[in-house]
Design a protein around this nucleic acid. Structure first.
Length: 498
RNA sequence: GGGUUGUUAGCUCAGCUGGUAGAGCACCGCACUUUUAAUGCGAUGGUCGAGCGUUCGAAUCGCUCACGACCCA
């Protein structure tokens, strides 16, 4: 049975009939209504006034919005309409509308319909700011009934697949996306104030670089060539630093062909920024002040509550190296256990971590870190000194050649940011690419490609530079107290529903 | 990929060890000029996610599949 047939047996049929009557009588979808007010502004500007103040100097308003609730009591009705800013109550009576309109028009409208109205502000008996309506028009007939008014939409699947319903019904969802927008605006302003320039670099790349991840592939017909959706903008942004744009940033989508989970969506938003004549330590300081600023802008406090825990961005963030953090969370281990590949592998095996033959000491250390440390890094923490082996684009530390001048930032047990002093030694970079190619040939399909064009760019000279990426979705989750990345993506990736 | 779990009216949910499918909201009708989960009375609405099996009989038991949720790798 088709969906249409089934629909026609229900409320949708009744609504189609109402629409059909409208079409016969008048313009069914008028576009000429203009409003001069929105609900929340009225609440803010006039909500605190007394009944007497409102009656003494009548305030006339034109409003538009969707009918969300309705209470018909004979010759008078109350209704709430919702617009982009919030809700406001309407008071509609038979005798203030044209003869017959109340019974033959207004009472036939449905919850979900979109209306335009004019009237005067007043306070009800219980003190709710409302509009005493004298003019009201139907602007858009809704054919489908809205979800139940009290519970709204709780079915996760409908929330994600029909986001518009979630947005109509759930204020918390609207709020989450408003916060997302504010965070991105804050970041743009924060960086622009510091002389960073916003740029856009290719989403479609012939060599997917800048990260280790499985890419999506596509094909360009005219050029008859394969292309990859980017996994990172990094190598293009650094080409711009070579070109003399010494502070650049990009906030946009990356694509990774990996699984879906509460923390992963195949397309996700990254902020990446690069600053010449800076080191990774400078970016850790910058990250601290950016997060502190976001927290104050969004939460009015340096403390945020996430899934029942309180995190404080006001204090200076903790900093420790990868090895220090492993020893801290595994007190039974000592430095020697992590100093040779042989001892580290035996630790990893005790932890049931699968170790491949081609893993060097650095990779084994990172596996142990990910298994035993990452999820325990609850309070804002920078982890530094990542092994060279897992950091093919980061500058080698001058004192310890096994590690790089790199950090990752964690809060709530999740990685939020990754930054380092950039490798601007073209010869070292060429050798690192070659190492990646060897690993790819050995079967690691996440290893990087050799990007000869990028090496050429470095050979022209890239100033000493530090760069960083921040996962915007995970950051927004933190500030919206969202348990799943899907709660901060307007249209998360879903399997098609057959 | 593995484990747990869910899918019943437009929405939120009941439905016991198998015996004719239920409620609230929404919708339709009636009453009602300060309600706000309005209220009162009455009516409508279902291939119980899909398929196969067990059975005299399946929303309920079994298997397979689809789409979610949570946990693990």
């Amino acid at each position: 049975m088709s969906e249409i047939q089934q629909d026609e047996q229900t409320q949708i049929k009744q609504r189609r009939e109402k629409l059909s009557l409208l079409r016969d009588k008048d313009i069914a979808f008028p576009t000429d209504f203009r409003r001069d007010a929105i609900a929340n502004e009225l609440q803010v500007n006039h909500g605190k006034k007394t009944k007497e103040e409102l009656d003494a100097t009548p305030i006339r308003v034109k409003l538009a919005g969707r009918i969300m609730t309705r209470r018909i009591m004979g010759k008078a009705s109350f209704a709430h309409i919702q617009d982009m800013s919030g809700k406001i109550q309407l008071y509609v009576t038979r005798d203030t509308l044209p003869e017959g309109f109340y019974n033959t028009q207004f009472k036939k409208w449905d919850i979900g319909d979109i209306i335009g109205t004019e009237g005067v502000l007043f306070k009800t008996k219980v003190g709710e700011l409302s509009v005493r309506v004298d003019t009201i028009r139907l602007l858009t007939k809704a054919l489908r009934p809205l979800p139940e008014k009290f519970h709204g939409i709780v079915d996760q699947e409908i929330k994600y697949r029909q986001r518009y319903l979630d947005l109509i019904m759930n204020e918390k969802s609207r709020k989450n996306f408003e916060i997302r927008s504010k965070i991105v605006s804050y970041i743009r302003q924060f960086l622009t104030e510091r002389q960073f320039m916003e740029v856009e670099t290719p989403m479609m790349q012939s060599i997917p670089g800048g990260a280790t991840a499985r890419p999506f592939t596509t094909h360009h017909n005219a050029l008859d060539m394969g292309l990859y959706l980017r996994i990172s903008p990094e190598l293009y942004l650094k080409r711009l630093v070579v070109g003399g744009f010494e502070r650049v940033f990009e906030v946009n989508r990356n694509f990774r062909n990996e699984g879906l989970s509460s923390r992963h969506n195949p397309e996700f938003t990254m902020l990446e920024f690069y600053q010449a004549y800076a080191e990774y330590g400078d970016l850790m300081d910058l990250t601290e002040s950016m997060l502190r600023g976001i927290s104050i802008a969004i939460c009015d406090s340096t403390k945020i509550s996430y899934q029942g825990e309180i995190y404080d961005f006001g204090k200076s963030f903790e900093r420790m190296t990868v090895v220090e953090s492993i020893l801290h969370f595994n007190p039974e281990l000592n430095l020697d256990d992590l100093s040779t590949r042989e001892t580290a592998v035996s630790i990893a095996e005790k932890l049931a971590i699968p170790i491949k033959d081609n893993y060097g000491l650095g990779k084994v250390q990172i596996e142990i870190f990910e298994k035993t440390v990452e999820h325990k890094l609850m309070h804002p923490t920078f982890i530094t000194a990542y092994p060279v082996e897992v950091s093919p684009l980061a500058r080698r530390n001058d004192k310890d050649h096994h590690v790089t001048d790199r950090f990752e930032f964690f809060v709530g047990g999740r990685e939020i940011a990754n930054g380092f002093t950039e490798l601007n030694d073209a010869e070292d970079q060429a050798a690192r690419f070659q190492q990646q190619v060897n690993e790819k040939e050995a079967g690691d399909d996440e290893a990087m490609h050799y990007d000869a064009d990028y090496i050429t760019a470095l050979e022209y000279g890239m100033p000493p530079t530090a760069g960083e990426g921040i996962g915007i979705d995970r950051l927004v989750m933190l500030f919206t107290d969202a348990p799943s990345i899907r709660d901060v993506l307007l249209f998360p990736q879903m399997r098609p529903k057959s």
